[in-house]
Design a binder for these strands. Structure first.
Lengths: 236, 236
DNA sequence: TGATCTTTTGTACGATAGTACAAATCACAT
DNA sequence: ATGTGATTTGTACTATCGTACAAAAGATCA
């Protein structure tokens, strides 16, 4: 606002760099990394293929920049919400608040960057499924700290549950979260139109409710596995 | 055993067609569809690229055949286990048996085809994330019936829970299941070596335990969402 | 206005993709 | 052993990929 923009920040079209980032994010998130060509991205952004190379050097560089854009704000938001959640007195309410602090930023905008964090979360889900190397490196070193913070917080709310179980359950939470964003239509289809899989608020409520209950499940003791076959094959 | 094999069933190498299918399954499941070339598959199978075209015509045809191979046996197995589970008297035990009937075939072999259903389930997870068209069509028309059968069975065990909630929770189950197969290393990493994400038996027990609790969570009433913000931002 | 720097365009290059196809090779019945 | 059909090989074609780069166009300030 105060300073005047230098030539470095000006561009012919409103903001071609941002348009390319947004187009790439959308296309990667819905089709995967390899299925999308640089030309596809350029066309969707109304740009020339050469512009992509100019701004991001390589296709990997473009993906890297998308991650850089979102990781910081999203983790910041999660940390803030987690800090607030930890101040909740009632243990049951606190657990729910912690889960919500983890889930909400993934569905809504991690920052205000062009329409929200749901698209970025979906992108992460797809990259994770594809085993994308660039994504794998950034994710491990960017999200593991936050994941540990949440696991620790949940563990404090449920001290009688082994940490291992908490890890598994939070892993399931992330999987459920990812899948909800990847194929929301499946929910609409299986519920025969009664539920809308694309409704973020509805998905959040369902996910939080189910996950809190999952975390509160009894600890998994080592004797349990022996029960498995007996229960399944029982005919009475 | 009885009949003697005709020339139609013989081949130079033990079974090149099967080798190609197995190699493709493995590569697709770990790297996605587009990242794997026909040449990659041929090399992994010890075959010539031309052989792939000969046996499966196109790359899509190869994927299609992988699905055809597994879908039938896997759904059959699930149906059998579901039928057995529905005969369990105790409601709590029955719910667990139903969930187990859904989960177990996804982790262990859906048939005895070359090492198990876990690889195929992972493949489905990856194809679903990539939005693969070939897979999407087969999945919807092959698995939806089974999914509905499970949802109905669970609904009968939990009549006080709205069907919509059951659909959401079973969707979360599938997401958790997929994610456990896609990135098992994440569990090992976050648990600091205390848990092994690649251990199918352990994953199944954790998943069943958590999911049963999730299904048993109270129904989501429409008033709940209003509580959301209050809980998160509460400072006391 | 003209010099200078940034951005966009257009095009081209080498690599690799999926697939087609003829020739070679193999298994087996006769 | 020999002919026949199934399979495998080798290779080639076309399309498209990521990327490089020179030229054009636009913006900025003396």
């Amino acid at each position: 606002m105060v300073r005047k923009p230098t030539s470095k920040e000006t561009a012919r079209k409103p903001n071609m760099r941002e348009a390319i980032l947004a187009a790439a994010e959308e296309l990667f998130a819905t089709n995967g990394f390899n299925a999308v060509s640089v030309r596809d991205i350029a066309q969707a952004a109304g740009a020339n293929p050469g512009s992509v190379t100019y701004h991001f050097k390589t296709k990997d560089g473009l993906l890297l920049e998308i991650y850089r854009r979102h990781c910081g704000p999203m983790n910041l938001r999660r940390s803030e919400l987690l800090a607030a959640a930890k101040r909740v007195r009632d243990l049951q309410d606190r657990l729910e608040a912690i889960v919500r602090a983890y889930v909400v930023p993934a569905f809504t905008s991690g920052s205000d960057l062009a329409g929200g964090g749901a698209r970025f979360t979906r992108l992460r889900a797809v990259m994770s499924a594809e085993g994308n190397e660039v994504a794998r490196k950034i994710i491990a070193q960017t999200f593991d700290d936050t994941s540990h913070a949440f696991i620790d917080a949940i563990h404090e709310s449920l001290p009688h549950i082994p940490r291992t179980d908490i890890v598994w359950r939070s892993h399931f939470l992330l999987g459920a979260l990812y899948y909800s964003l990847v194929t929301p239509d499946r929910v609409s289809r299986l519920s025969r139109g009664e539920a809308d899989g694309s409704d973020a608020a509805g998905a959040i409520e369902q996910l939080v409710q189910a996950t809190v209950a999952a975390f509160q499940a009894p600890a998994l003791d080592q004797a349990a596995p022996a029960r498995r076959r007996a229960v399944v094959s029982s005919k009475t």
